[in-house]
Amino acid sequence: MTKKDFIIVGIILILGGLLLVSRYFFRRDDGVFAQITCLFGVTTFSLDDDLIFTLPSNENIVFEIRDGQIAFLESDCPDKVCVHVGFLRRVGQMAVCLPNNTVLAILGEDADSAGIDLFVKNR
């Protein structure tokens, strides 16, 4: 690697690092709602109540809300990327299950808590 390469890669790394650090610096609030977007629409859950549930669009995806955090507990997708993300608690955090077309996002107090209510199944 030449000096020029080091400088260019270094600049990219610093820019990426700054973006990453700034986000964690500014958005540290604990989430209030979990928003789940799936094929059937958008639904919002309070993170206050512990719950284990599945979605009507796919009963093989299981979510767990515990201690103000939410995670993909189980999924039938091949790569399990969504499950590996683990528990989310801070505003702005997201987890995705691409094969199942499902997005999980953490929202703050200002979120529209009404959303569209989906029928969910307790597990």
Partner: peptide, 10 residues
Amino acid sequence: FPVLIITGAV
């Protein structure tokens, strides 16, 4: 985006 930039560079 930030994570992808960093992992892409490395």
